[in-house]
Write a protein that binds this DNA or RNA. Structure first.
Lengths: 236, 236
DNA sequence: CGATTGGTTGAGCCCATTCAACGAATGTGG
DNA sequence: CCACATTCGTTGAATGGGCTCAACCAATCG
Protein backbone atom coordinates (compact mmCIF):
# COMPACT_ATOMS: atom_id res chain seq x y z
CA UNK A 1 0.00 0.00 0.00
CA UNK A 2 2.51 2.58 1.14
CA UNK A 3 6.06 2.95 -0.08
CA UNK A 4 8.15 1.72 2.84
CA UNK A 5 11.21 3.67 1.76
CA UNK A 6 9.50 7.00 2.20
CA UNK A 7 8.63 8.26 5.64
CA UNK A 8 5.82 10.38 4.27
CA UNK A 9 4.63 10.81 0.73
CA UNK A 10 1.82 13.21 1.56
CA UNK A 11 4.20 15.28 3.69
CA UNK A 12 6.40 15.91 0.65
CA UNK A 13 3.59 16.32 -1.84
CA UNK A 14 3.54 19.60 -3.68
CA UNK A 15 -0.23 19.95 -3.34
CA UNK A 16 -0.60 18.94 0.28
CA UNK A 17 -2.16 22.29 1.22
CA UNK A 18 -4.91 21.68 -1.32
CA UNK A 19 -5.48 18.08 -0.39
CA UNK A 20 -6.49 15.84 2.51
CA UNK A 21 -3.39 16.70 4.61
CA UNK A 22 -4.32 20.37 4.73
CA UNK A 23 -4.51 21.48 8.34
CA UNK A 24 -3.21 18.23 9.79
CA UNK A 25 -0.21 17.97 12.10
CA UNK A 26 2.91 16.25 10.84
CA UNK A 27 2.38 13.07 12.77
CA UNK A 28 -1.21 12.95 11.59
CA UNK A 29 -0.06 13.13 8.00
CA UNK A 30 2.35 10.27 8.66
CA UNK A 31 -0.51 8.13 9.89
CA UNK A 32 -2.75 9.13 6.99
CA UNK A 33 0.06 8.26 4.62
CA UNK A 34 0.11 4.65 5.68
CA UNK A 35 -3.44 4.18 4.51
CA UNK A 36 -3.18 5.86 1.15
CA UNK A 37 -2.45 4.33 -2.19
CA UNK A 38 -0.31 7.05 -3.69
CA UNK A 39 -0.24 8.54 -7.12
CA UNK A 40 -1.74 5.92 -9.31
CA UNK A 41 -1.20 7.25 -12.81
CA UNK A 42 -4.04 7.52 -15.29
CA UNK A 43 -3.99 8.21 -18.99
CA UNK A 44 -6.29 10.46 -20.93
CA UNK A 45 -9.63 8.76 -21.38
CA UNK A 46 -9.16 6.31 -18.49
CA UNK A 47 -12.18 5.81 -16.25
CA UNK A 48 -11.47 5.70 -12.54
CA UNK A 49 -14.89 4.24 -11.93
CA UNK A 50 -18.16 3.95 -13.81
CA UNK A 51 -21.80 4.33 -12.90
CA UNK A 52 -22.94 1.32 -10.93
CA UNK A 53 -19.45 0.23 -9.83
CA UNK A 54 -19.19 -0.90 -6.23
CA UNK A 55 -17.81 1.79 -3.97
CA UNK A 56 -14.69 1.02 -1.99
CA UNK A 57 -12.41 4.03 -2.23
CA UNK A 58 -12.36 7.74 -2.53
CA UNK A 59 -9.84 9.38 -4.83
CA UNK A 60 -8.13 12.72 -4.77
CA UNK A 61 -6.74 14.20 -7.97
CA UNK A 62 -2.99 14.66 -7.57
CA UNK A 63 -2.34 15.72 -11.16
CA UNK A 64 -4.44 16.30 -14.26
CA UNK A 65 -8.10 17.03 -14.77
CA UNK A 66 -11.14 14.79 -14.54
CA UNK A 67 -14.76 15.02 -15.47
CA UNK A 68 -17.66 13.27 -13.77
CA UNK A 69 -20.88 12.43 -15.63
CA UNK A 70 -24.18 11.07 -14.48
CA UNK A 71 -26.00 8.63 -16.72
CA UNK A 72 -29.75 8.65 -16.35
CA UNK A 73 -31.70 5.44 -17.00
CA UNK A 74 -33.00 6.81 -20.29
CA UNK A 75 -29.69 7.43 -22.01
CA UNK A 76 -29.60 11.01 -20.83
CA UNK A 77 -26.21 12.05 -19.60
CA UNK A 78 -24.97 15.12 -17.79
CA UNK A 79 -21.48 16.27 -16.87
CA UNK A 80 -21.66 17.09 -13.15
CA UNK A 81 -18.20 18.51 -12.62
CA UNK A 82 -14.58 19.00 -13.62
CA UNK A 83 -12.13 18.08 -10.87
CA UNK A 84 -8.72 19.64 -10.49
CA UNK A 85 -5.81 18.78 -8.18
CA UNK A 86 -6.77 18.32 -4.56
CA UNK A 87 -10.43 17.65 -5.28
CA UNK A 88 -12.21 14.46 -4.28
CA UNK A 89 -13.76 11.96 -6.64
CA UNK A 90 -16.44 9.52 -5.52
CA UNK A 91 -18.15 11.40 -2.69
CA UNK A 92 -21.57 10.67 -4.18
CA UNK A 93 -21.06 6.95 -3.73
CA UNK A 94 -20.90 6.95 0.08
CA UNK A 95 -24.67 7.23 0.23
CA UNK A 96 -25.50 3.92 -1.38
CA UNK A 97 -22.26 1.98 -1.75
CA UNK A 98 -22.24 2.30 -5.49
CA UNK A 99 -21.08 5.04 -7.82
CA UNK A 100 -23.75 7.29 -9.28
CA UNK A 101 -21.44 8.85 -11.82
CA UNK A 102 -18.38 7.96 -13.85
CA UNK A 103 -15.03 9.71 -13.54
CA UNK A 104 -12.89 10.04 -16.68
CA UNK A 105 -9.46 11.61 -17.04
CA UNK A 106 -9.41 14.53 -19.52
CA UNK A 107 -5.62 14.45 -19.63
CA UNK A 108 -2.86 12.24 -18.28
CA UNK A 109 -2.52 12.56 -14.54
CA UNK A 110 -2.62 10.71 -11.28
CA UNK A 111 -4.82 10.14 -8.28
CA UNK A 112 -4.33 9.10 -4.68
CA UNK A 113 -6.71 6.47 -3.39
CA UNK A 114 -7.95 5.79 0.10
CA UNK A 115 -10.27 2.97 1.10
CA UNK A 116 -13.33 4.59 2.59
CA UNK A 117 -13.58 2.31 5.60
CA UNK A 118 -10.00 3.18 6.44
CA UNK A 119 -10.70 6.88 6.07
CA UNK A 120 -13.60 6.52 8.49
CA UNK A 121 -11.42 4.60 10.96
CA UNK A 122 -8.74 7.25 10.69
CA UNK A 123 -11.39 9.85 11.29
CA UNK A 124 -12.13 8.21 14.62
CA UNK A 125 -8.49 8.73 15.61
CA UNK A 126 -7.96 12.17 14.10
CA UNK A 127 -10.70 14.71 14.79
CA UNK A 128 -8.92 17.20 12.56
CA UNK A 129 -9.16 14.82 9.64
CA UNK A 130 -12.78 14.12 10.44
CA UNK A 131 -13.62 17.79 10.47
CA UNK A 132 -11.80 18.60 7.26
CA UNK A 133 -13.53 15.69 5.57
CA UNK A 134 -16.89 17.06 6.63
CA UNK A 135 -15.93 20.41 5.20
CA UNK A 136 -15.01 18.77 1.91
CA UNK A 137 -18.38 17.04 1.70
CA UNK A 138 -20.15 20.27 2.54
CA UNK A 139 -18.09 22.19 0.00
CA UNK A 140 -19.25 19.76 -2.65
CA UNK A 141 -22.86 20.45 -1.62
CA UNK A 142 -22.27 24.20 -1.92
CA UNK A 143 -20.66 23.73 -5.31
CA UNK A 144 -23.54 21.62 -6.59
CA UNK A 145 -26.08 24.13 -5.34
CA UNK A 146 -24.12 26.87 -7.07
CA UNK A 147 -24.50 24.93 -10.30
CA UNK A 148 -28.21 24.57 -9.60
CA UNK A 149 -28.42 28.35 -9.36
CA UNK A 150 -26.50 28.69 -12.59
CA UNK A 151 -28.66 26.17 -14.46
CA UNK A 152 -31.90 27.40 -12.95
CA UNK A 153 -31.60 31.13 -13.33
CA UNK A 154 -28.84 32.16 -15.74
CA UNK A 155 -28.92 32.62 -19.48
CA UNK A 156 -26.38 31.03 -21.78
CA UNK A 157 -23.93 33.95 -21.82
CA UNK A 158 -23.97 34.26 -18.07
CA UNK A 159 -23.44 30.54 -17.60
CA UNK A 160 -20.40 30.52 -19.83
CA UNK A 161 -18.97 33.64 -18.22
CA UNK A 162 -19.40 32.10 -14.78
CA UNK A 163 -17.82 28.87 -15.99
CA UNK A 164 -14.73 30.59 -17.38
CA UNK A 165 -14.29 32.75 -14.29
CA UNK A 166 -14.61 29.69 -12.09
CA UNK A 167 -11.98 27.80 -14.07
CA UNK A 168 -9.66 30.80 -13.92
CA UNK A 169 -10.09 31.20 -10.19
CA UNK A 170 -9.37 27.58 -9.50
CA UNK A 171 -6.35 27.63 -11.82
CA UNK A 172 -4.97 30.70 -10.08
CA UNK A 173 -5.47 29.03 -6.72
CA UNK A 174 -3.21 26.27 -8.02
CA UNK A 175 -0.54 28.75 -9.04
CA UNK A 176 -1.39 28.53 -12.67
CA UNK A 177 -2.25 31.53 -14.75
CA UNK A 178 -5.64 33.04 -14.06
CA UNK A 179 -6.05 34.36 -17.58
CA UNK A 180 -4.49 31.69 -19.80
CA UNK A 181 -6.84 28.73 -19.85
CA UNK A 182 -6.54 25.46 -21.68
CA UNK A 183 -9.93 23.84 -21.96
CA UNK A 184 -9.11 20.17 -21.71
CA UNK A 185 -12.76 19.27 -22.26
CA UNK A 186 -14.72 19.41 -25.51
CA UNK A 187 -17.40 21.99 -26.30
CA UNK A 188 -19.91 19.22 -25.82
CA UNK A 189 -18.62 18.53 -22.30
CA UNK A 190 -18.89 22.20 -21.44
CA UNK A 191 -22.37 22.34 -22.91
CA UNK A 192 -23.50 19.28 -20.99
CA UNK A 193 -22.19 20.78 -17.76
CA UNK A 194 -23.89 24.12 -18.43
CA UNK A 195 -27.13 22.75 -19.80
CA UNK A 196 -26.41 24.04 -23.32
CA UNK A 197 -25.82 22.57 -26.75
CA UNK A 198 -22.28 22.52 -28.09
CA UNK A 199 -23.21 24.94 -30.88
CA UNK A 200 -24.39 27.44 -28.33
CA UNK A 201 -21.12 27.16 -26.41
CA UNK A 202 -19.16 27.68 -29.61
CA UNK A 203 -21.28 30.66 -30.66
CA UNK A 204 -20.96 32.40 -27.33
CA UNK A 205 -17.21 31.89 -27.18
CA UNK A 206 -17.04 33.54 -30.59
CA UNK A 207 -19.26 36.36 -29.37
CA UNK A 208 -17.05 36.95 -26.33
CA UNK A 209 -14.08 36.98 -28.69
CA UNK A 210 -15.77 39.58 -30.92
CA UNK A 211 -16.55 41.68 -27.87
CA UNK A 212 -12.89 41.68 -26.88
CA UNK A 213 -13.48 39.71 -23.70
CA UNK A 214 -11.52 36.65 -24.76
CA UNK A 215 -8.90 35.40 -27.15
CA UNK A 216 -10.12 32.05 -28.39
CA UNK A 217 -8.11 29.63 -30.44
CA UNK A 218 -9.67 26.22 -30.16
CA UNK A 219 -9.06 25.05 -26.64
CA UNK A 220 -6.69 27.87 -25.80
CA UNK A 221 -8.57 30.70 -24.16
CA UNK A 222 -7.09 33.87 -22.76
CA UNK A 223 -9.29 36.05 -20.61
CA UNK A 224 -8.79 39.66 -21.66
CA UNK A 225 -11.38 41.21 -19.39
CA UNK A 226 -12.56 39.34 -16.34
CA UNK A 227 -14.40 42.53 -15.37
CA UNK A 228 -16.32 42.27 -18.61
CA UNK A 229 -17.26 38.68 -17.87
CA UNK A 230 -18.33 39.60 -14.36
CA UNK A 231 -20.42 42.43 -15.76
CA UNK A 232 -22.28 39.99 -17.99
CA UNK A 233 -23.31 38.01 -14.94
CA UNK A 234 -24.19 41.08 -12.91
CA UNK A 235 -26.28 42.77 -15.61
CA UNK A 236 -28.55 39.72 -15.93
CA UNK B 1 -30.86 21.25 26.45
CA UNK B 2 -32.51 17.88 27.03
CA UNK B 3 -35.68 17.24 28.95
CA UNK B 4 -34.49 15.55 32.14
CA UNK B 5 -37.83 13.90 32.74
CA UNK B 6 -37.60 11.79 29.59
CA UNK B 7 -35.09 9.01 29.34
CA UNK B 8 -35.01 9.21 25.56
CA UNK B 9 -36.93 11.51 23.28
CA UNK B 10 -35.39 10.25 20.08
CA UNK B 11 -36.06 6.68 21.15
CA UNK B 12 -39.78 7.40 21.31
CA UNK B 13 -39.93 9.62 18.24
CA UNK B 14 -42.32 8.49 15.56
CA UNK B 15 -39.88 9.28 12.78
CA UNK B 16 -36.73 7.83 14.34
CA UNK B 17 -36.22 5.41 11.44
CA UNK B 18 -36.10 8.35 9.04
CA UNK B 19 -33.85 10.49 11.20
CA UNK B 20 -30.44 10.56 12.84
CA UNK B 21 -31.15 7.64 15.17
CA UNK B 22 -31.73 5.28 12.25
CA UNK B 23 -29.43 2.30 12.59
CA UNK B 24 -28.14 3.23 16.04
CA UNK B 25 -28.28 0.97 19.08
CA UNK B 26 -30.54 1.92 21.96
CA UNK B 27 -27.75 3.15 24.22
CA UNK B 28 -26.32 5.16 21.35
CA UNK B 29 -29.64 6.89 20.89
CA UNK B 30 -29.70 7.69 24.59
CA UNK B 31 -26.32 9.37 24.32
CA UNK B 32 -27.32 11.25 21.17
CA UNK B 33 -30.45 12.41 22.93
CA UNK B 34 -28.55 14.28 25.57
CA UNK B 35 -26.99 16.52 22.97
CA UNK B 36 -30.09 17.39 21.02
CA UNK B 37 -32.41 20.29 21.39
CA UNK B 38 -35.71 18.59 20.73
CA UNK B 39 -38.69 19.68 18.73
CA UNK B 40 -38.42 23.39 18.60
CA UNK B 41 -41.67 24.46 17.01
CA UNK B 42 -41.76 26.78 14.04
CA UNK B 43 -44.65 28.61 12.44
CA UNK B 44 -45.37 29.01 8.77
CA UNK B 45 -43.01 31.60 7.35
CA UNK B 46 -40.44 31.36 10.13
CA UNK B 47 -36.81 31.31 9.04
CA UNK B 48 -34.58 28.80 10.80
CA UNK B 49 -31.52 30.61 9.49
CA UNK B 50 -30.73 33.10 6.77
CA UNK B 51 -27.97 33.48 4.25
CA UNK B 52 -24.85 34.73 5.97
CA UNK B 53 -25.86 33.65 9.48
CA UNK B 54 -23.10 32.08 11.54
CA UNK B 55 -23.27 28.32 11.54
CA UNK B 56 -23.55 26.56 14.88
CA UNK B 57 -26.13 23.85 14.52
CA UNK B 58 -27.64 21.41 12.13
CA UNK B 59 -31.37 20.86 12.14
CA UNK B 60 -33.54 17.91 11.26
CA UNK B 61 -37.15 18.40 10.29
CA UNK B 62 -39.35 16.56 12.79
CA UNK B 63 -42.66 17.85 11.42
CA UNK B 64 -43.73 20.06 8.58
CA UNK B 65 -42.08 21.12 5.35
CA UNK B 66 -39.27 23.59 4.69
CA UNK B 67 -37.76 25.22 1.67
CA UNK B 68 -34.16 26.35 1.27
CA UNK B 69 -33.19 29.19 -1.08
CA UNK B 70 -29.85 30.52 -2.17
CA UNK B 71 -29.50 34.26 -2.66
CA UNK B 72 -26.92 35.28 -5.22
CA UNK B 73 -25.09 38.58 -4.77
CA UNK B 74 -27.07 40.16 -7.61
CA UNK B 75 -30.56 39.66 -6.22
CA UNK B 76 -30.99 36.39 -8.05
CA UNK B 77 -32.55 33.73 -5.91
CA UNK B 78 -33.07 30.02 -6.36
CA UNK B 79 -34.97 27.47 -4.32
CA UNK B 80 -32.51 24.62 -3.75
CA UNK B 81 -34.79 22.15 -2.04
CA UNK B 82 -37.89 21.19 -0.11
CA UNK B 83 -37.15 19.31 3.09
CA UNK B 84 -39.54 16.81 4.66
CA UNK B 85 -39.42 15.01 8.01
CA UNK B 86 -36.09 13.38 8.78
CA UNK B 87 -34.10 15.53 6.37
CA UNK B 88 -31.23 17.74 7.43
CA UNK B 89 -31.10 21.50 7.15
CA UNK B 90 -27.81 23.40 7.16
CA UNK B 91 -25.38 20.88 5.68
CA UNK B 92 -24.06 23.47 3.23
CA UNK B 93 -22.82 25.64 6.09
CA UNK B 94 -20.22 23.20 7.42
CA UNK B 95 -17.85 24.16 4.63
CA UNK B 96 -17.36 27.77 5.59
CA UNK B 97 -18.98 28.27 8.99
CA UNK B 98 -21.76 30.39 7.60
CA UNK B 99 -25.04 29.55 5.96
CA UNK B 100 -25.19 29.75 2.17
CA UNK B 101 -28.94 29.50 2.02
CA UNK B 102 -31.98 30.35 4.08
CA UNK B 103 -34.45 27.82 5.44
CA UNK B 104 -38.10 28.84 5.74
CA UNK B 105 -41.03 26.81 7.07
CA UNK B 106 -43.77 26.29 4.47
CA UNK B 107 -46.18 25.14 7.16
CA UNK B 108 -46.19 24.92 10.92
CA UNK B 109 -43.89 22.24 12.21
CA UNK B 110 -40.88 21.53 14.34
CA UNK B 111 -37.19 20.79 14.10
CA UNK B 112 -34.60 19.12 16.27
CA UNK B 113 -31.33 20.95 16.65
CA UNK B 114 -27.86 19.66 17.34
CA UNK B 115 -24.76 21.77 17.78
CA UNK B 116 -22.36 20.72 15.07
CA UNK B 117 -19.30 20.52 17.31
CA UNK B 118 -21.23 18.18 19.56
CA UNK B 119 -22.29 16.07 16.63
CA UNK B 120 -18.65 15.75 15.59
CA UNK B 121 -17.60 14.83 19.13
CA UNK B 122 -20.36 12.25 19.28
CA UNK B 123 -19.17 10.90 15.97
CA UNK B 124 -15.80 10.24 17.56
CA UNK B 125 -17.54 8.04 20.13
CA UNK B 126 -20.09 6.40 17.85
CA UNK B 127 -18.74 5.08 14.54
CA UNK B 128 -22.27 4.16 13.52
CA UNK B 129 -23.39 7.73 13.89
CA UNK B 130 -20.34 8.94 12.03
CA UNK B 131 -21.04 6.61 9.15
CA UNK B 132 -24.70 7.45 8.88
CA UNK B 133 -23.85 11.14 8.93
CA UNK B 134 -21.47 10.62 6.04
CA UNK B 135 -24.21 8.85 4.16
CA UNK B 136 -26.55 11.77 4.77
CA UNK B 137 -24.03 14.24 3.40
CA UNK B 138 -23.43 12.04 0.39
CA UNK B 139 -27.15 11.60 -0.17
CA UNK B 140 -27.49 15.35 -0.33
CA UNK B 141 -24.76 15.43 -3.00
CA UNK B 142 -26.59 12.78 -5.03
CA UNK B 143 -29.84 14.70 -4.69
CA UNK B 144 -28.24 17.94 -5.82
CA UNK B 145 -26.62 16.26 -8.79
CA UNK B 146 -29.97 14.77 -9.69
CA UNK B 147 -31.39 18.29 -9.78
CA UNK B 148 -28.45 19.34 -11.95
CA UNK B 149 -29.42 16.61 -14.40
CA UNK B 150 -33.01 17.77 -14.29
CA UNK B 151 -32.14 21.42 -14.85
CA UNK B 152 -29.48 20.71 -17.42
CA UNK B 153 -31.20 18.23 -19.66
CA UNK B 154 -34.94 18.08 -19.15
CA UNK B 155 -37.70 20.14 -20.69
CA UNK B 156 -40.35 21.87 -18.64
CA UNK B 157 -42.91 19.04 -18.76
CA UNK B 158 -40.32 16.47 -17.77
CA UNK B 159 -39.09 18.59 -14.88
CA UNK B 160 -42.53 19.00 -13.46
CA UNK B 161 -43.35 15.31 -13.89
CA UNK B 162 -40.13 14.38 -12.11
CA UNK B 163 -40.87 16.85 -9.36
CA UNK B 164 -44.35 15.49 -8.71
CA UNK B 165 -43.17 11.89 -8.76
CA UNK B 166 -40.37 12.75 -6.35
CA UNK B 167 -42.77 14.44 -3.93
CA UNK B 168 -45.13 11.48 -4.15
CA UNK B 169 -42.34 8.99 -3.50
CA UNK B 170 -41.10 10.85 -0.47
CA UNK B 171 -44.61 11.26 0.88
CA UNK B 172 -45.29 7.56 0.48
CA UNK B 173 -42.04 6.77 2.26
CA UNK B 174 -43.44 8.77 5.18
CA UNK B 175 -46.66 6.78 5.15
CA UNK B 176 -48.63 9.51 3.52
CA UNK B 177 -50.57 9.00 0.36
CA UNK B 178 -48.48 8.63 -2.76
CA UNK B 179 -51.17 10.07 -5.02
CA UNK B 180 -52.80 12.77 -2.93
CA UNK B 181 -50.39 15.69 -2.76
CA UNK B 182 -50.76 19.03 -1.07
CA UNK B 183 -48.32 21.48 -2.54
CA UNK B 184 -47.42 23.63 0.41
CA UNK B 185 -45.23 25.85 -1.77
CA UNK B 186 -46.35 28.44 -4.31
CA UNK B 187 -46.12 28.04 -8.07
CA UNK B 188 -43.29 30.52 -7.94
CA UNK B 189 -41.35 28.35 -5.46
CA UNK B 190 -41.82 25.33 -7.68
CA UNK B 191 -40.74 27.34 -10.70
CA UNK B 192 -37.66 28.64 -8.97
CA UNK B 193 -36.68 25.12 -7.93
CA UNK B 194 -37.23 23.77 -11.44
CA UNK B 195 -35.72 26.68 -13.34
CA UNK B 196 -39.10 27.73 -14.77
CA UNK B 197 -41.38 30.74 -14.49
CA UNK B 198 -44.52 30.43 -12.41
CA UNK B 199 -46.74 30.82 -15.47
CA UNK B 200 -45.05 27.83 -17.07
CA UNK B 201 -45.62 25.73 -13.96
CA UNK B 202 -49.28 26.70 -13.95
CA UNK B 203 -49.70 26.00 -17.65
CA UNK B 204 -48.12 22.59 -17.45
CA UNK B 205 -50.18 21.58 -14.43
CA UNK B 206 -53.26 22.51 -16.46
CA UNK B 207 -51.92 20.53 -19.42
CA UNK B 208 -51.36 17.46 -17.22
CA UNK B 209 -54.88 17.93 -15.92
CA UNK B 210 -56.27 18.08 -19.46
CA UNK B 211 -54.36 14.94 -20.35
CA UNK B 212 -55.93 13.10 -17.45
CA UNK B 213 -52.67 12.66 -15.61
CA UNK B 214 -53.60 14.81 -12.62
CA UNK B 215 -56.51 16.30 -10.78
CA UNK B 216 -55.49 19.83 -9.92
CA UNK B 217 -57.39 22.16 -7.63
CA UNK B 218 -55.07 24.89 -6.51
CA UNK B 219 -52.56 23.29 -4.20
CA UNK B 220 -54.38 19.99 -4.03
CA UNK B 221 -53.03 17.60 -6.63
CA UNK B 222 -54.02 14.01 -7.14
CA UNK B 223 -51.84 11.88 -9.35
CA UNK B 224 -54.13 9.84 -11.59
CA UNK B 225 -51.43 8.19 -13.67
CA UNK B 226 -47.91 7.99 -12.34
CA UNK B 227 -47.16 5.76 -15.33
CA UNK B 228 -48.18 8.62 -17.58
CA UNK B 229 -45.86 10.98 -15.74
CA UNK B 230 -43.01 8.49 -15.97
CA UNK B 231 -43.66 8.10 -19.67
CA UNK B 232 -43.27 11.83 -20.15
CA UNK B 233 -39.79 11.63 -18.65
CA UNK B 234 -38.86 8.53 -20.55
CA UNK B 235 -40.02 9.76 -23.96
CA UNK B 236 -37.81 12.84 -23.69
C1' DC C 1 -65.08 46.73 1.88
C1' DG C 2 -60.62 47.48 -0.80
C1' DA C 3 -55.97 45.65 -0.85
C1' DT C 4 -52.96 41.98 -1.37
C1' DT C 5 -51.38 37.57 -2.67
C1' DG C 6 -51.62 33.53 -5.48
C1' DG C 7 -53.15 31.31 -9.62
C1' DT C 8 -54.78 30.86 -14.62
C1' DT C 9 -54.77 31.93 -19.33
C1' DG C 10 -53.74 34.42 -23.80
C1' DA C 11 -50.72 36.77 -27.39
C1' DG C 12 -46.39 37.86 -29.12
C1' DC C 13 -41.53 37.56 -28.82
C1' DC C 14 -36.82 35.99 -28.25
C1' DC C 15 -33.14 32.99 -26.97
C1' DA C 16 -31.43 28.72 -27.52
C1' DT C 17 -32.16 24.65 -30.26
C1' DT C 18 -32.29 21.95 -34.46
C1' DC C 19 -30.68 20.90 -38.79
C1' DA C 20 -27.18 21.45 -41.92
C1' DA C 21 -22.90 22.47 -44.27
C1' DC C 22 -18.19 23.09 -43.95
C1' DG C 23 -13.25 23.31 -42.20
C1' DA C 24 -9.36 21.86 -39.34
C1' DA C 25 -6.88 18.53 -36.93
C1' DT C 26 -5.77 13.94 -35.86
C1' DG C 27 -5.20 9.22 -36.61
C1' DT C 28 -5.09 4.88 -39.36
C1' DG C 29 -4.19 1.54 -42.69
C1' DG C 30 -2.64 0.57 -47.27
C1' DC D 1 3.53 9.00 -47.81
C1' DC D 2 -1.21 9.77 -49.06
C1' DA D 3 -6.24 8.72 -48.94
C1' DC D 4 -9.70 8.31 -45.90
C1' DA D 5 -12.36 8.30 -41.73
C1' DT D 6 -13.28 10.32 -37.50
C1' DT D 7 -13.57 13.74 -34.15
C1' DC D 8 -13.96 18.42 -32.97
C1' DG D 9 -15.24 23.08 -33.81
C1' DT D 10 -17.53 27.00 -36.36
C1' DT D 11 -21.22 29.28 -38.58
C1' DG D 12 -25.84 29.99 -40.91
C1' DA D 13 -31.03 29.62 -41.33
C1' DA D 14 -35.22 28.29 -39.56
C1' DT D 15 -37.90 26.59 -35.72
C1' DG D 16 -40.04 26.36 -31.34
C1' DG D 17 -40.36 26.16 -26.25
C1' DG D 18 -40.52 28.91 -22.57
C1' DC D 19 -40.55 33.81 -21.33
C1' DT D 20 -42.62 38.46 -21.09
C1' DC D 21 -46.34 41.27 -20.66
C1' DA D 22 -50.94 41.60 -19.56
C1' DA D 23 -55.62 40.80 -18.10
C1' DC D 24 -58.48 38.51 -15.11
C1' DC D 25 -60.24 35.64 -11.16
C1' DA D 26 -60.36 33.65 -6.38
C1' DA D 27 -59.15 33.60 -1.68
C1' DT D 28 -57.54 35.84 2.27
C1' DC D 29 -56.90 39.60 5.35
C1' DG D 30 -56.87 43.94 7.66
Amino acid sequence: MNSPDLKSVCGCCSIKELCIPAGLAEEEVLLLDQHMNHRRTVRKGDALFRTGDAFRSLYVVSAGLFKTSMLHEDGRTQVTGFQMTGEYLGLDAISSGKHHCEAVALEGGSVCEIAFDQLESLGQLLPNLQHSFHKSLSREIVRDQGVMLLLGSMRAEERLAAFLLNLAKRSAHRRQSDSELILRMTREDIGSYLGLKLETVSRILSRFHDQGLLEVQGRHVRILSSEGLERIIRDH
